[in-house]
C-alpha cells in the first residue's frame, strides 16, 4: 500500500472505492432495507415509561453496552480499510480511540427517521424522551440534531462508506507514530471521495461533509464530559459493570 504512486491511477481509485464500500456493507450493524422495514415500529407509551423509570446508572450501563456493540462493528470496518492493518498497533489504537465514536455517530444517521425524529434502538424506534433517565438531555438533543443534519445530505451508502473511512483515517490525531503513512492513506481516500462525488455530480457535498467533522469532534467531547460527570457520581458502576472496551476507549 505505501508504495502506491501519487496521484493514484484511476484503477487504484476505483479499487479503493469498491473496497471501502464493501467493507462498510459487510460491517454495518443493520442493513438499510431492514431499517426501512422497521421504520414505523415505535416504542409504546408503556415501553417508553419503562426506559424513563430506569435509574441513571442502569440506563447508562444499558447505553454503554449498546454503544460498545456499535463500536465493535466500527473496529471491523477499520480493519478492512486497505492499509489500516499495515499501520503499527499504536496507530491503529490511536485512530480507533479518537475516531470510533465519530463513526458510530455518522452511522447512526442510517438508523434515524427524520419524519418523526426517532432512532433505532433495542429493536424499535424511539425519540430523545427514551433517553431521559441518562440525565444528559443536551447531549441527546445534539446527537439527534446531528443525525438530522446528516440525513439532510441524503448520502448514498457508497458516499457514507467513504466519509466514514475519512473520519477514521485522520492524520491530525495526537500521538500518531507514523503520521506520514496515515497522511498518505488519507490523501488517497480524499481522492476517492472527490472521484465519487464527481461521478455522482454532487461535488457540493464535499464542503458540507468536511464541515461535519468539527461537529463530530464536539459531540465526542461532550460525550466524554458527560461520562466524566457520571463516573464521578457512580464510580463503581463504571468500574464494575461497564463493558471493558467502552472503558478502554472513553475513560
Amino acid at each position: 500500500y505505501p508504495y502506491c504512486p501519487y496521484p493514484p491511477s484511476l484503477l487504484h481509485i476505483e479499487e479503493l472505492c469498491d473496497s471501502i464500500v464493501r467493507s462498510h456493507r459487510d460491517t454495518s450493524q443493520f442493513r438499510l432495507e431492514e431499517l426501512q422495514a422497521l421504520r414505523w415500529k415505535l416504542f409504546s407509551r408503556e415501553e417508553i415509561h419503562a426506559y424513563q423509570s430506569k435509574s441513571v446508572d442502569e440506563m447508562w450501563q444499558h447505553c454503554a453496552v449498546r454503544l460498545t456493540e456499535a463500536v465493535q462493528y466500527v473496529v471491523e470496518f477499520a480493519k478492512r480499510i486497505p492499509g489500516f492493518r499495515g499501520l503499527g498497533q499504536n496507530d491503529q489504537i490511536t485512530l480507533l480511540k479518537t475516531g470510533s465514536m465519530e463513526v458510530v455517530l455518522v452511522r447512526m444517521s442510517r438508523c434515524f427517521n427524520t419524519e418523526n425524529s426517532t432512532v433505532f434502538f433495542d429493536g424499535k424506534f424511539g425519540s430523545t424522551e427514551l433517553f431521559k433517565s441518562l440525565g444528559c438531555g443536551d447531549l441527546m438533543v445534539a446527537v439527534f440534531d446531528f443525525a438530522h443534519s446528516m440525513c439532510a445530505l441524503r448520502l448514498t451508502e457508497q458516499q457514507m462508506a467513504l466519509f466514514c473511512s475519512l473520519v477514521l483515517i485522520n492524520p491530525d490525531r495526537p500521538c500518531l507514530e507514523d503520521r506520514g503513512r496515515v497522511h498518505r492513506m488519507r490523501r488517497d481516500l480524499e481522492v476517492c471521495l472527490s472521484h465519487m462525488l464527481h461521478r455522482d455530480n454532487q461535488e457540493s457535498l464535499q464542503h458540507k461533509l468536511y464541515q461535519k467533522v468539527s461537529v463530530l469532534q464536539s459531540l465526542c467531547s461532550l460525550h466524554v464530559e458527560k461520562l466524566h460527570w457520571f463516573s464521578q457520581r457512580y464510580p463503581l458502576t463504571v468500574h464494575s459493570v461497564f463493558p471493558p472496551l467502552y472503558k478502554e476507549l472513553f475513560t
Binding site: Q72, V75, E76, K79, Q89, I93, L96, K97, L245, E248
Partner: peptide
C-alpha cells in the same frame, strides 16, 4: 499495551 487489552485482541483477530 495492558491499557488496551480488548482493542489489541479485536485488532489481532483475523477478519471474519
Amino acid at each position: 499495551k495492558e491499557k488496551h487489552k480488548i482493542l489489541h485482541r479485536l485488532l489481532q483477530n483475523s477478519t471474519s
